[in-house]
């Protein structure tokens, strides 16, 4: 959804600067790994560092995307809405690279083995499902798509992002060997972001005349 901009004319340029800044920062993790390959600074197992790092960044961007709405509701910040689409697309971008690095560096495009993996290993199944859920969201991210679908239907479709978030965190949990602290951190973050939405809904429901 395009947020309503209610800014005075002299501030109109700001979104552009904001977007440029966010775009450049969002591309930086990729730059970091590209530089890391060149400089051999990704440790003894660079391929694993890249595959895992790309997955972590996909999840980071997914959570950032999910933060825009609660920030509007509870902190009255509207600027995150301006960059939400871009953050969502970066989530998809890093998820695609994460998947590609699995297909390539882990499996070397050995399709029978990949298919076996998808059906046999729950954490791969869940990871793949997350990616499939993100695909229609990325494909309908344009203004044109919103127009064609109509806002209510578009919004309904894009609620899939909640499920994608949950599956992405589950994917992380099921991959880890023993130390659950980092996936737990993400689970707490996600629960907070989704929980705030529930709180907001209840709040709105209870006092329908306000807002």
């Amino acid at each position: 959804m395009r947020p309503q901009l209610q800014t005075p004319a002299q501030w109109r340029l700001k979104p552009l600067w904001l977007k440029a800044l966010v775009f450049i920062s969002s591309a930086m993790p990729l730059g970091w790994y590209a530089f890391g390959i060149q400089a051999d600074s990704l440790g003894a197992n660079p391929i694993e560092a890249i595959t895992r790092g790309l997955g972590t960044w996909a999840l980071n961007f997914l959570l950032m995307t999910l933060a825009a709405t609660p920030l509007k509701h509870f902190a009255h910040w509207t600027w995150p809405l301006l960059i939400r689409r871009m953050l969502g697309l970066f989530a998809f971008f890093y998820a695609s690279l994460h998947l590609l690095s699995y297909l390539w560096f882990d499996q070397f495009f050995d399709w029978p083995s990949i298919i076996k993996d998808i059906f046999k290993r729950p954490f791969i199944t869940v990871g793949m499902a997350t990616f499939l859920l993100l695909c229609p969201l990325a494909m309908t991210s344009t203004d044109g798509a919103i127009r064609r679908l109509g806002l209510p239907r578009w919004k309904k479709l894009h609620r899939l992002v909640y499920l994608a978030g949950i599956l992405a965190v589950l994917h992380y949990f099921w991959m880890v060997k023993a130390d659950m602290r980092t996936p737990l951190m993400y689970a707490v973050g996600l629960t907070l972001l989704l929980g705030l939405r529930a709180v907001w809904l209840l709040h709105k429901h209870r006092r329908p005349n306000r807002q």
Binding site: A44, N45, I47, E48, F105, F108, S113, D117, K120, R121, P122, F123, W174, M175
Partner: peptide, 19 residues
């Protein structure tokens, strides 16, 4: 015999690209 969550058929020798 696979680890329940990943295959043990191949390995990456540290320093190598292919498995």
């Amino acid at each position: 015999v696979d680890h329940p969550r990943w295959s043990q058929a191949k390995e990456r020798r540290i320093g190598e690209f292919l498995k």
